[in-house]
Design a protein around this nucleic acid. Structure first.
Length: 417
RNA sequence: GGGGGAAUGUCCCGAGCGGCAAAGGGGGCGGACUGUAAAUCCGCUGGCUAUGCCUUCGCAGGUUCGAGUCCUGCUUCCCCCA
């Protein structure tokens, strides 16, 4: 199946996006023949997408780049249910309000990744609430539900985890797969969509859509999934100290985002450059081959390029510059993340432990206390040794800020307001 | 329908004679070493207005000076019989 003839599959393959494809030859031929329409669905589980979603969104980018039409599907309807795939327990139900706000947050990122419009080849954004919310229950069961075998659904790996574990799988969640399958068929009808892409955890849901298409008379549909990315040492991608690595700047600043990539493990550089940047493969091969401490140059390029896609070139350069001042000059970069501090609080002597909690560097004063013992907290680069230390105006640097550091890499400035 | 078992530190797994903030892992975080890497070693891994106070062992009651541990009911799950 290897040398693909279509630009799209070749690019995806070369860059390491492909985990599974249904009928690779058929899809390849279809992509050669003319523009294809494909979609990826995003449920409104948070106000922002995260790094994991970026992979599939990037596939949509290359899809468009190679002459096809991508659809970004907002899961306004499916989010009312919640995907149980590979989850070991039920999540709380999202309220309609939350879903609406989440979708607003999620939409923002696509403007940077896809080109939308009305011309052929322009990307389209749709919301499955448009066709799911008004379904008639009995009618839907008769038209669509009859095509699903419960026996078969129970055999899917995606629900096995839940079944094997002692957690119940509610009927509500059990329907998720059916609705997603229906989405695929509906998008085929409405927009001629014949390919659904997603993370490897979506394979079962996607294939169900293909089956449903067969039974309901759709043309041949295709599935393509990406591997679940892990770091070389086995950790799941996308986790940072504060939780997920979000794409929206209000949840995860461009500087933090840049830092996330800067700290990539050596062994992952090539793989990540191919997926998270748009650099040409030749350039990537050169960077990935760097040895010793030279790999740091490659990591900086990875960080800047990946950040530029998500936050814009300017923000990426600024983040790189802030990092350079902080880590390479050992100086004080005044555009490090900062929080405002009322002058009155400082005048009243602010407890050092409290200050670190306020800055969001540690979650509790208890944790701050422990870190003092471990030598992990510094004020203006001087280690805190006394739990009862406090801050005063005397601690302000000549730039008028106080720099709090947690560990070697996390820094926050307190800035008088 | 009947019988037997399980639920533990809100990341996961998992010990726990009635005195328990609760063994041990994994993961995570910090320190040392480095290159803002990996590997390795060391430490930490409920909260607070902190030599004390408060909240944790599926949920709700009860016995007891004292309950994760015993009793009752409930919820969810697993196994066997029908």
């Amino acid at each position: 199946m290897n040398p693909f003839k279509s630009d799209f599959l070749r690019v995806l393959d070369e860059r390491g996006f492909i985990h599974q494809v249904s009928d690779p030859e058929g899809l390849d031929a279809a992509c050669v023949k003319g523009p294809v329409t494909a979609y990826v669905g995003y449920d409104a589980t948070a106000t922002s997408l995260h790094i994991g979603n970026l992979i599939s969104a990037t596939m949509l980018h290359w899809f468009q780049e190679t002459g096809h039409r991508p659809i970004a599907l907002m899961g306004g309807g499916t989010s009312m249910i919640g995907d149980p795939s590979f989850r070991d327990e039920q999540r709380g139900l999202l309220t309609p309000d939350a879903i609406a706000t989440n979708i607003e947050g999620i939409k923002r990122i696509f403007g940077r990744i896809l080109r939308f419009g009305d011309k052929p080849g322009d990307a389209v954004m749709v919301n499955n609430a448009d066709w799911l919310m008004d379904l008639n229950y009995v009618g839907f069961l008769r038209d669509v539900g009859r095509h699903f075998s419960v026996n078969r659904m129970l055999a899917f790996d995606s629900v096995k985890l839940r079944l094997d574990r002692e957690q119940s799988l509610s009927f509500l969640e059990f329907n998720y797969m059916i609705l997603q399958a229906y989405d695929f068929v509906e998008l085929n009808k409405r927009l001629g969509c014949t390919l659904q892409m997603g993370g490897s955890d979506q394979w079962g849901n996607i294939v169900s859509g293909i089956d449903l298409g067969h039974r309901m008379g759709s043309p041949q549909l295709y599935a393509l999934t990406t591997p679940l990315l892990t770091t070389s040492s086995g950790a799941k991608m996308g986790k940072s100290a504060n939780g997920a690595v979000w794409l929206n700047g209000d949840l995860f600043s461009p500087y933090e985002f840049w830092q996330y990539w800067r700290n990539t493990e050596d062994a992952d550089i090539g793989r990540f450059l191919k997926i998270f940047t748009r650099l040409p493969l030749g350039e990537i091969a050169r960077l990935a081959a760097l040895g010793g401490s030279e790999v740091n140059e490659a990591k900086k390029i990875l960080a800047t390029e990946a950040t530029a896609i998500v936050h814009g070139r300017e923000a990426a350069e600024a983040a790189a510059e802030t990092a350079r001042k902080t880590f390479e000059d050992g100086g004080l970069a005044t555009d490090l993340p900062s929080i405002a501090l009322p002058r009155a609080e400082l005048a009243a002597r602010l407890g050092a432990l409290t200050a670190f909690v306020k800055a969001g560097l540690v979650p509790s004063t208890g944790e701050a206390r422990r870190q003092v013992k471990a030598g992990g907290l510094r004020i203006n680069d001087v280690a805190v040794t006394d739990e009862r230390a406090s801050l005063s105006e005397a601690d302000l640097t000549s730039e008028g800020v106080i720099k709090l550091s947690f560990g070697r890499k996390k820094h926050v400035l307190l800035r008088l307001e």
